[in-house]
Amino acid sequence: MNILVLVKQTPDTESKIKLNSDNTAIETGDLKYIINPYDEYAIEEAIKLSEKFADSKVTLICLGNAALKETTETLRKGLAMGASDAILIDAAGLNTACPYLTANAIYQNISSLKYDIILSGMKAVDDDYSCVPTLLAGMLNIPAVTAIVKLTVSPDQKTAECEREGESGREVLISSLPALFSAQKGLNEPRYPSLKGIMAAKKKEIANKKAEAVSPKIKIVKLSTPPPRPAGKIVKGDFPNNVKELASLLRSEAKVI
């Protein structure tokens, strides 16, 4: 089975994000990067499938700035977890703030590849758009099932049963393959790369690709920071008087009860 996994690096979720002086971009100087947390679930699921089905191949696909060492580090970590190959599409010169453009750049590079399953994270925790998987699947004309928490591929590899949290409960779906699935937390527990995996990953080659820029459909005019929350107060006094005081403040001052 051929599995493609879309991955990207995002700032560590602990990071403080600061804007540059003209509010057009974030300061990246001191940022630490991690693999987008949802992509780790996608990688793990792909590796689990490759362990189950003989002759499988897991190819990581990353659209990212090839000049940044963090981009290659992300791919090396995925390789160390157990992926077979990695393709890095250079995002330099592309306006990746537009999900169409991102999906299109990936499309250009994977449409001629052989794949049964494409896995991705359900969203990236930097731009928080969550649009690329659906848009890419549309371009490839394959089904997209988003935010899955369970995936079972049939022994003949023609269909997959999956589960996702819908509005009225847990949906159980059957999709024909090839299809794209985006991973929600709960799908699995991502493994830590083994020492052997880390050593093997160092030797693997990362294929460098490019993409033609298409015109973006949306544009960021500016960035801003949300207004800080005004300082609150600790309701003083001994129990239970402090709780009584809180209840009355919620009515008289905050007017929420």
């Binding site: 804007l19 974030i26 930097d126 928080d128 801003s224």
Partner: peptide, 18 residues
């Protein structure tokens, strides 16, 4: 206006030539 980085930043976004 769309929050990014889990709401640490807000992006003001327009449609481009649409």
């Amino acid at each position: 206006v769309h929050p990014m980085y889990a709401g640490k930043i807000r992006a003001h976004i327009k449609f481009e030539n649409q």
